[in-house]
Amino acid sequence: MSKSLFTSLFLGVLLVVSIVGYSLYNQGRVSRADLDNLSATVFRTPRSIKPFELTDHTGKPFTQESLKGNWSFIFFGYTNCPDVCPNTLSMMNIMAVNFEQKQPDKQIPRFIMISVDPERDTVKQLSGYIPYFNNAFVGLTGTSSQQIDVITKQFGIPYFINKKAPTDTEYEVQHSGALLLVNPDGNLHALFSGPHDAAKIISEFNLIRYFYEQN
């Protein structure tokens, strides 16, 4: 009696183990080598982020601590940018909508634009700009370029304020098109270089996140 109970228990456990094993096998475990083949640069050791202090588009402070608890996609731009920035923000919106519809059980990553033009991009300016693309998006600015540089310098994000004269108010800001990915520990995890494609970033991000959650 107890022997047959033991046998059926054993068989039951065996069945569960093989179902789990088979489904894991079927999903194909993501290996480090798979991540090396992505177009994104995935850091072997995620890089910690030095303390910074910026203000979001609602006027609230935003620091490196604010990045914890969720994945974040970070893009550098400015609101007086007619072509690349709205194009990238629209693409980020496609990504956000896709995450919401295709992966409703997962937390939607944060989407952030850090202004590289704090002189014109005041909190008020950002508040009239960022929510247009998506209400959940976050715009960050500072009171000086030095505040922005704490972040751009540590990640080697180039930008150049192309002022033709000190009085120039229509200046262009040349900036990197890179998209940074910060993990829920608040560490820089990967980097996507432009030109960007929403579908490709999503599929690569899914792999990156799957590998992160496995380890």
Binding site: V84, F160, E172, Q174
Partner: peptide
């Protein structure tokens, strides 16, 4: 008229 180009990692018009 502007042309957006990607040069040395910088997007410029």
């Amino acid at each position: 008229f502007h042309k957006t180009v990607l040069e040395n990692g910088l997007s410029k018009m």
